[in-house]
Design a protein around this nucleic acid. Structure first.
Length: 605
RNA sequence: GGGGGUGUAGUUCAGUCGGUUAGAACGCCGGCCUGUCAAGCCGGAGGUCGCGGGUUCGAGCCCCGUCGCUCCCGCCA
């Protein structure tokens, strides 16, 4: 007696047929006489009827059924009697009249009801195997499967080869903290779990595989967020003999295919592009949410001479990139209706990002000077007011927020404020999914703690060659124009979240050496840590580049769920623990000894 | 490392100014019930108020510490 159909497959066309179904008791409705069971499997529900007249023995057995018992049953599919159809169920026109019933397993009362909303996440994670039975989680993981399969089909069709790379690899400097694995065979030595397959995919290009992809697990030992797990999945791809445009075109085709196949939607292509500089100027963030029709206005030039010291000081502050001063405005159309309390809340909000305050002007109108309501308006001349209006396009009824500080603080605080206000005032346009490419990222960033430059993307990212012209690493690391070099790196942004990123890589060994020199990595150190890659570059490395999509984030956004934990079968908590298995855990001292390890941890006592 | 939120029945929550025996809904158990689909009606059981300490005649409530979960900053692409 094997299963003939999934529960949700039964339709009116089956009426009169015998079916055999397997599944869980979703709900029991025992009328004393007739008993109804909703039988559930991963596809959905079907109503099963136990009739005391037609099958008395089976009916008596059905009294003993409880929620989540596992059943196999057979019966005839029947059209439901008139007036008892349930239009809310896809199977609501029919029911199965059970004539055979086998209880495959019993179930204790569940620690939570599967159909209850808002069950605490701790409980759900502790009993994840039950949580995953819920239709919402079934939907999420089944959708994720469709996305993954769609990726495989699309890339296979474009000639990409799926190749696996090692999980036990070597620790490399730069980037995130590694998860380490001690080597038993090599005392005192450690593998690292890969932060990404970056170096291996470059080696595959050098090896001539030309187009590679992998649905790759990546590991980073950093603090968690709603969209960050210690292990996560990337759709990782790399191509030879390409430029940035080629990688972006393939990615757009890939995303377009998965929208068609998994979302049944046609994604408008091509995806619009912004340069990093433009994104920062207009939106303050390198991952702008273009659904929000608000933009920042740069007032720095016009504020150099103002009598308002806070603005003048910021406007005249010099420095590299994020360190220079900036004065910017964010215009909120109709924002004059915001209350003082709301403005105070926004002031607290921007403080999170280092803003020391949040200046504002309400344009109450009618248009005249005393229509301006603001603690700072008294500092501005009539000319300055006119210039502010002209630059921002402010109209009566609007509110202007201002940021004046070093550039990184102004951009981040106003950029985040733009998103928050846009969402809270429901200013989003009706595009459900808004993709944008952000291109021409800076190559290097200054790390104040380490007192050296670090790669914004990673050390193998190719610079834009025109920016490199005439630049000499021997000129020293403090050379101010190092900050001006752009890279051939690009991020894919969806609804204000980075869902992918990549670059054209350096294939010229000399340029790669120069790059490492920019980063303050000595030749000997480079040889020790990246020697295998440097050597490979000497043996006929083709031009190549690629990209990685954050699958967890992408799937979460497409499903409209707030946390990537809801699209991962067995996620970890914010403390990087698993409530189901209790990982991580202490281990037997013998295991440690085999690994040549001793813990220095002192338990609190 | 830092800031915010939170923890009361199996679950989701309420619990007044510190004052009698800590409540509700759902779930669970028992009974009744032949067309329900959040079935219905009647009855019942169920509590280490996260944990530890303190203040008090008296603590779910106040104070200190601690643990878990969560959001954010730092960190991380």
């Amino acid at each position: 007696m094997n299963r003939s159909d999934y529960c949700n497959a039964i339709r009116e066309g089956h009426v009169g047929q015998r079916v055999t179904l397997c599944g869980w008791v979703n709900r029991r409705r025992d009328h004393g006489g007739v008993i109804f069971i909703d039988l559930r499997d991963r596809t959905g529900l079907v109503q099963v009827v136990f009739s005391p007249e037609r099958h008395p023995a089976i009916h008596r057995q059905a009294h003993e059924l409880r929620s989540e018992f596992v059943l196999r049953l057979s019966g005839e599919v029947a059209r439901r009697p008139q007036e008892t159809e349930n239009p809310k169920l896809p199977t609501g026109m029919i029911e199965v009249i059970a004539d055979q019933l086998e209880v495959l397993n019993l179930a204790q009362t569940l620690p939570f009801q599967l159909d209850e909303e808002g069950v605490g996440e701790s409980t759900r994670l502790q009993y994840r195997f039950l949580d995953l039975r819920r239709p919402e989680m079934q939907r999420n993981l089944q959708f994720r499967h469709r996305v993954t399969q769609s990726v495989r089909r699309a890339l296979d069709a474009e000639g990409f080869l799926e190749i696996e790379t090692p999980m036990l690899t070597r620790s490399t400097p730069e980037g995130a903290r590694d998860y380490l694995v001690p080597s038993r065979v090599n005392p005192g030595q450690f593998y690292a779990l890969p932060q990404s397959p970056q170096l291996f995919k470059q080696l595959l290009m050098i090896a001539g595989y030309d187009r590679y992809f992998q649905v790759a697990r990546c590991f980073r030992d950093e603090d968690l967020r709603a969209d960050r797990q210690p292990e996560f999945t990337q759709v990782d791809l790399e191509m030879s003999f390409v430029e940035a445009n080629d990688v972006m075109a393939i990615t757009e085709q890939l995303v377009g295919t998965l929208f068609q196949e998994a979302m049944q939607q046609t994604l408008p292509l091509p995806i619009p592009r912004l340069t990093y500089a433009e994104a920062m100027a207009r939106y303050g963030l390198d991952a702008p949410d273009l659904r929000i029709p608000l933009e920042l206005t740069d007032l720095t030039a016009m504020m150099r001479q103002t009598g308002f010291k806070v603005f003048a000081q910021a406007a005249n502050q010099t420095g590299n990139r994020g360190g220079r001063g900036l004065v910017k405005a964010l215009r909120i159309p109709g924002g004059a209706t915001l209350t003082r309390k709301q403005i105070d809340e926004y002031t607290e909000f921007v403080a999170i990002y280092g803003a020391k305050g949040l200046a504002w002007i309400k344009l109450n109108g009618p248009w005249q000077e005393d229509g301006w309501q603001s603690p700072i308006v008294k500092f501005f001349s009539a000319e300055e007011k006119a210039a502010i209006v002209a630059a921002t396009g402010a109209q009566i009824g609007d509110l202007l927020f201002f940021g004046a500080d070093q550039a990184s603080v102004v951009n981040e605080s106003l950029g985040r404020l733009r998103v928050k206000v846009g969402k809270e005032l429901h200013l989003l346009n009706d595009t459900a999914f808004s993709f944008v490419w952000v291109t021409e990222f800076p190559l290097l960033d200054w790390d104040n703690e380490a007192r050296r430059h670090v790669a914004v993307h990673h050390p193998f990212t190719a610079p834009m060659l025109e920016d490199l012209h005439g630049l000499d690493p021997a000129a020293g690391l403090a050379a101010p124009h190092l900050d001006e070099i752009r890279s051939q790196a690009y991020d894919l942004v969806l609804n204000g979240t980075e869902v992918g990123g990549g670059s054209i890589r350096i294939h010229d060994p000399a340029l790669q050496q120069k790059m490492l020199a920019f980063l303050g990595i000595e030749a000997a150190e480079a040889e020790e840590k990246f020697g295998f890659l440097l050597k490979a570059l000497d043996f006929g490395a083709p031009p190549h580049g690629g990209l990685a999509l954050g699958l967890d984030r992408l799937v979460a956004i497409l499903l409209g769920v707030d946390s990537i934990r809801d699209v991962i079968a067995f996620p970890k908590t914010q403390r990087a623990g698993c409530l189901l298995t209790q990982a991580p855990s202490a281990v037997d001292p013998l295991q440690l000894r085999e690994l040549h390890l001793r813990s220095t941890h002192q338990p609190k006592g």
